Computed example of a mutant assay.
Amino acid sequence: MRVDHFRHRLPGRAVGTCSPEQLGELVPSDRDVRYGRPAAAGLALGVRRTAVLMDLALTENGLHPDPAARLPVYGGGGRHQPDGALPDGAVPVLRPEQVAAASAFLRDSALGELVRQQNSVLARTAVHLGYPTPWSEAWATLVVHDLRELRDFFARAAAAGDAVAVREAE
Rank of each mutant, 00 (worst) to 15 (best):
G112R: 07
S103I: 04
N119F: 08
L122M: 05
V121M: 11
P134K: 08
A123V: 06
Q98K: 09
T133E: 14
A100V: 07
A110T: 08
R116Y: 09
V99H: 01
L111A: 00
E137K: 10
V127D: 15
A104W: 05
L106Y: 03
V115D: 03
L106R: 03
Y131L: 14
A140I: 02
V121D: 11
S109V: 07
S120G: 11
T133W: 08
L142V: 13
T125I: 04
A102I: 04
Q117L: 12
T125A: 12
A102R: 04
Q118S: 15
A101V: 03
S136L: 05
A100S: 14
R107P: 09
V127W: 14
T125S: 11
L111G: 01
V127I: 12
Q118V: 07
D108S: 11
R107K: 11
H128V: 07
S109R: 14
R116M: 06
Q98V: 07
A102Y: 03
L106S: 03
A110N: 14
Q98C: 04
Q98W: 05
V121P: 06
T125Y: 05
A123D: 09
L111R: 05
T125P: 07
E113Y: 12
W139Y: 12
V127E: 15
Q98T: 06
R124V: 05
W135I: 04
L111H: 03
Q117W: 12
L122R: 00
V143D: 03
Q98P: 03
Y131N: 08
T141L: 15
P132Y: 06
Y131H: 12
V121S: 13
S103R: 06
V99G: 02
S136D: 01
D108I: 00
Y131F: 14
H128F: 15
L142Y: 06
L129P: 05
E137T: 14
P132V: 07
G130D: 00
Q117M: 10
L114C: 10
L142D: 10
H128R: 09
V99C: 00
H128T: 10
L129T: 12
P132F: 08
A101Y: 00
A100E: 11
D108P: 07
A140V: 04
L129W: 08
R107T: 15
W139S: 05
T141C: 12
P132W: 10
Q117S: 10
T125M: 12
F105K: 02
W139T: 09
T125G: 05
A104K: 09
A104H: 10
Y131M: 13
P134W: 07
S120R: 14
F105H: 01
V127Q: 15
